[in-house]
Nucleic acid binder design. Structure first.
Ligand SMILES: [Zn+2]
Ligand SMILES: [Zn+2]
Ligand SMILES: [Zn+2]
Ligand SMILES: [Zn+2]
Lengths: 138, 138
DNA sequence: CCACGAGTTGACAATCGTTCTCAATTGATC
DNA sequence: GATCAATTGAGAACGATTGTCAACTCGTGG
């Protein structure tokens, strides 16, 4: 090619390390259960690291896209977040206190893929969450 | 017991077969993918069986509680409904057209229960949905 | 056939989580 | 320090869902 070699490299705008961004990440590291954006926003306020609510929402979205945090939906549709390991896993959540355990299951991964394949579905992905009452809450 | 045998049976108010209720149930039988309350409300209007939006929401909730329909949450938190068989099952949904297949997996049921047990969780329940692109959409 | 009471309905207001707007700030670079 | 795009935050705007409440409707009994 001569001059029309304009390559279309994904112009992902570079993220910048701001006080707010740092504060949210640190806050996410301070608890192990799933929390709503509003709760996290409040927690930041208490910590003296006030961050605008809109920014909390934006940052949480970024982190979720980046796979830094996992997102779940409460029964009434509210999004709740939790910092998580970067490998694929699922959650075992206590209905009473929210205590969460990350769990893995190769068999399940295999099963979903095969059942989808049998029905002619491709590009398979899935969501799986387990709920129960933990020992401490009984 | 003599007189203090006042049993506390949940006084579930008896449901009444109204035109609206029937209309919603029939509408739910007319499609096989997941739809939002608003879409169902609109569908009813087109069918000449107009039903108030609030009533559609209320009816859908009742049906969901009764296990007559399954509820899912879109990625942005909107509730979507689908009439389903009454036995426990999961869904294989096409991301493009919404085509849905009900699937069962005894192995998965067993796995979730045992993994929860291993971690000391009781009263186990779970949610599992599989997404992919169906043959027709490829 | 009519009165009666609890269940229902629907138009509309009110919630509430989340996103949008946009002027002011800030971080990186030269 | 000048420059410019990325970022922020206060508040408005949105959109799905729920609450309100007077009018309505289905049994039931008289
Ligand atoms: Zn996780
Ligand atoms: Zn998985
Ligand atoms: Zn189903
Ligand atoms: Zn199951």
């Amino acid at each position: 090619m001569t001059s029309t070699d304009a390559s279309p490299p994904p112009p992902n705008p570079p993220l910048r390390p701001t006080r707010q961004r740092r504060a949210v990440v640190e806050a996410m590291a301070s608890f192990a259960d799933f929390r709503s954006a509003q709760e996290i926003h409040e927690l930041l306020g208490q910590r003296g690291e006030a961050v605008g609510l809109a920014t909390v929402y934006r940052t949480l979205q970024r982190l979720a896209e980046a796979g830094e945090v996992d997102v779940l939906r409460t029964e009434d549709g509210e999004a709740i977040y939790r910092r998580c390991s970067d490998t694929h896993h699922h959650h075992l959540v206590c209905r009473a206190c929210g205590a969460t355990v990350e769990v893995e299951g190769p068999a399940v991964e295999r099963w979903t893929r095969s059942i989808a394949g049998e029905h002619g579905y491709a590009d398979v992905s899935h969501t799986l969450e387990i709920f129960g009452t933990c020992a401490a809450c009984r």
